[in-house]
Simulated scan of single mutants.
Amino acid sequence: MAITTYAELKAAAANWLVRGDLTARIPEFITLAEARLNRVLRTRLAETDVALSAVIGVRTIPLPAGLTEALALWIVGGEGRTKLRFVAAELIGAASLQGEPAAWTVDGATLAFDRPCDQAYPLTLRMLRGHALSDSAPTNGLLAEAPDVYLFATLCEAGPFLRDAELAGAYEAKLDRAIAELNAKDARSRAPRTLGVELADLFLERGR
């Protein structure tokens, strides 16, 4: 059967477990699987850009819902985007005078700047968004691209509940292989851009 939606994933997990009494538990297994995948996967499938707005006189903004990792932050202006420098939270400091921020960090549940903002600057945050299927959000990029990763991660969480170490080990092996293949594919999709930059740098160096 196809595995393209939350309902189909639940049905597939029940089929693989060959247990008709786990219907109420399978959503728990999926939630636990997503918590794990959100920690170990850093693929382009989870990358998204979110529009934010600074607040005049304030140097923090609440983190967007669903964020698992912040990747980059830009101020958006009429002539394009200006990338802000990331600084570790313990090193960023905080100027007292308001102005245009030049650096940012993640501090607790907020994005924090190196100074209070003097304008409501439009911002774009590139981040990793957590995978979270539900009846109201029945699909996402990871399920569409790698349903095997979702299924095997779900089955891994069922193993301890069923107290079946052999079953859990078999699905752990399948999950590890599926994740490795997904990461390799993601790396290949990024390679042409990296190679293009390297070749351009090489030609510039030779032209000097």
Results as ranks from 00 to 15, higher is better:
D176W: 08
E145H: 13
A165Q: 15
A158H: 04
P138I: 02
L125D: 01
R177F: 09
P138D: 07
M127L: 07
P138N: 06
S134N: 03
E157F: 05
A173N: 11
A184P: 06
H131M: 01
R126W: 01
G141N: 13
M127I: 00
F152S: 07
H131K: 01
Y171G: 08
L151F: 11
L162I: 11
N140E: 10
I179H: 07
A144D: 13
L123I: 00
G141D: 08
T154S: 11
D148C: 06
M127S: 02
E166F: 10
I179Y: 07
A146V: 03
P147L: 05
A168V: 11
T139W: 04
A178M: 10
A178L: 08
R177Y: 11
L182A: 13
L123P: 01
F161R: 14
L143G: 03
V149F: 09
E157H: 12
L142P: 03
N183W: 05
P160H: 14
A132E: 05
C156M: 15
R129G: 01
A120Q: 04
T139S: 14
S134A: 07
P147M: 06
E172S: 11
P160N: 14
L151T: 09
P122S: 02
L175R: 07
R177E: 15
I179G: 06
D118W: 00
N183S: 12
A187W: 09
L162Y: 10
P122Y: 03
A144C: 06
D164N: 15
R126N: 03
L162G: 10
R177T: 13
H131T: 02
L175V: 07
E145G: 02
E172N: 13
A144M: 12
G169R: 15
C117I: 00
E157G: 08
P122M: 01
R163D: 15
L155H: 11
S134V: 00
A137P: 00
T154Q: 10
Y171I: 05
L128I: 00
P147S: 08
P122L: 02
A173Q: 14
A170Q: 15
E172W: 10
S136P: 01
